[in-house]
Every structure is written in structure tokens, then in C-alpha cells.
Computed example of a mutant assay.
Amino acid sequence: MGDIAPRELISLADDEGNSVTVNVLGLDPGWSAGLDAEIVVRTPFVSGRIDLVLYASKLESWANALNRLDADEDIAWMEMSRRPSIFIQLTGEHDCPEVVVEDESGSMVTVRVPLVPPDDWIADHKQRLQQVMKYWVPPLSA
């Protein structure tokens, strides 16, 4: 693994200062089948972060979510887990895409972030996912 580890699985931001990122922090020391990660939300009004663990199956479900977004469908990612969930609505309440980060089982907080990502954001995120999978999934499988 001589390459630099890819860190940003998701990076959605706009010129208004709104952003939602999912950063891979490294292999989970407590469980070799998981990656430590975090969701970071930043807006001019509210900012926060929450830890999560990603598994190969969650990365695969993100690939499926990206394909649905590419087909102009809204998505829910990690919705059935007991950890944070991410929803992306292509046309939200403000006539622009919205990212909703929900942590019902932990903090019981939901944050809705309207933002206008660049035109090529889905293709960019497919490439980000490929880089993360190429770098991190082989060690998860070992």
C-alpha cells in the first residue's frame, strides 16, 4: 500500500459554505473488517461530526446509491443501520439538492443541508468510491 490513502469518500460542497463529507480515517483497530470514518457537516449556521464504521458491504451499497442518483432517483444510504444515515434528495425543499444526515439512534439529531454540487458530482463520487475500494477493501478482506 505505497499509494496515498484516499480519505474523502463523499465531498459535497457549494459556494455558500455548505458541505457534507464522509472521510475514511483508517482501518478500525477494534475490528479488522471495518474502516473508521466520520461524517462532517459544515454550514454557516451549524457544524458537526459523527463517527461511523464502514464495511465493504456499505461501500457496495454506496455504489448502488450512486447508480440510482445517476438515474435521477433520491437515495437513502445506511438507512437500516443503527448508525447515522445519509439521504440525498435531488430536488429538495429549496429547489436544489439536499443532503440529510440523520442520527436517530445516537444524538437524535437530523441536519438538512441544501447545496448545489458541480454538474459532474456523481461521476466524481464514483471515482472517489473506486479509489477507496481499491485501496481499502483488499485489507478488509484479508
Results as ranks from 00 to 15, higher is better:
73 E>F: 07
65 A>M: 06
80 M>G: 13
122 I>N: 08
16 E>W: 13
96 C>T: 12
6 P>V: 01
32 S>G: 15
5 A>G: 04
41 V>T: 13
16 E>M: 14
51 D>W: 13
7 R>I: 03
99 V>K: 00
10 I>L: 12
53 V>R: 12
98 E>Q: 07
4 I>C: 05
42 R>D: 15
7 R>Y: 02
29 P>A: 04
37 A>N: 09
121 W>Q: 03
111 V>L: 05
33 A>N: 14
140 L>A: 10
64 N>I: 10
122 I>F: 11
130 Q>G: 11
104 E>A: 14
94 H>G: 03
134 K>E: 15
57 S>W: 08
4 I>P: 05
78 M>C: 03
111 V>F: 02
89 Q>H: 13
74 D>Y: 00
33 A>S: 15
138 P>R: 07
43 T>W: 07
56 A>L: 10
97 P>T: 00
113 V>H: 01
86 I>Q: 00
75 I>F: 04
42 R>I: 14
86 I>L: 06
86 I>V: 11
15 D>R: 14
103 D>A: 02
18 N>H: 14
135 Y>T: 04
19 S>W: 09
11 S>I: 07
27 L>T: 13
111 V>W: 01
69 L>V: 11
110 T>P: 01
46 V>P: 04
17 G>H: 06
100 V>Y: 00
66 L>D: 08
128 R>V: 05
122 I>L: 09
21 T>R: 13
61 S>R: 08
87 F>V: 03
86 I>T: 00
28 D>L: 13
30 G>K: 13
125 H>N: 02
61 S>N: 09
75 I>E: 00
135 Y>P: 02
90 L>I: 03
33 A>I: 14
64 N>W: 10
25 L>W: 07
73 E>T: 06
88 I>S: 02
87 F>L: 03
14 D>M: 06
62 W>G: 00
132 V>A: 08
77 W>T: 00
13 A>W: 07
75 I>Q: 00
59 L>P: 11
133 M>D: 13
43 T>H: 06
83 R>S: 15
117 P>S: 06
70 D>H: 10
110 T>I: 07
41 V>R: 10
124 D>R: 12
91 T>F: 03
54 L>F: 01
26 G>F: 10
57 S>G: 07
88 I>E: 00
55 Y>E: 14
47 S>R: 15
53 V>Y: 11
119 D>Q: 13
37 A>S: 14
